[in-house]
């Protein structure tokens, strides 16, 4: 498991593959207030999508430049997507 669901936070670790998207989605649906801690070396687009769609509070570092520069701001963005 690379998506570790804790009491108040959900940790993404290791290489988060596409099959973990469902786990992340259900964890966030059950506890929308959970923080998501990014500690993964790779996060699949499917998981990023869940984060972009549900916009939880995300802390920790993105695994690559592109997601740091363009995806994290999208998740943090409080108004709707263009």
């Amino acid at each position: 498991m690379t998506v570790i669901v804790g009491e108040r936070e959900i940790r993404l670790t290791g290489r988060c593959g596409v099959d973990e998207a469902e786990a992340l989605l259900s964890a966030l649906s059950i506890a929308p207030q959970s923080r998501v801690v990014l500690a993964a070396e790779h996060v699949h687009t499917a998981l990023w999508q869940v984060l972009v769609a549900l916009r939880p509070t995300v802390i920790g570092g993105a695994p690559d430049r592109f997601s740091a520069d363009y995806i994290l701001p999208l998740i943090a963005q409080k108004d709707a997507l263009p």
């Binding site: 998207a21 469902e22 992340l24 989605l25 966030l28 649906s29 929308p32 790779h42 996060v43 699949h44 687009t45 499917a46 998981l47 990023w48 999508q49 869940v50 972009v52 769609a53 549900l54 690559d64 430049r65 592109f66 997601s67 520069d69 363009y70 995806i71 999208l74 709707a80 997507l81 263009p82």
Partner: peptide, 29 residues
């Protein structure tokens, strides 16, 4: 996103969606 991360010398990017995000209950990840 991995593919995009592999694009060299990126100077600008923007991301939009095909359709609006659905409710978490209906959202297909």
């Amino acid at each position: 996103i991995s593919l995009m991360a592999g694009v060299p010398e990126l100077v600008f990017a923007r991301i939009s969606t095909r359709e609006n995000w659905r409710d978490p209950a209906e959202f297909d990840p």
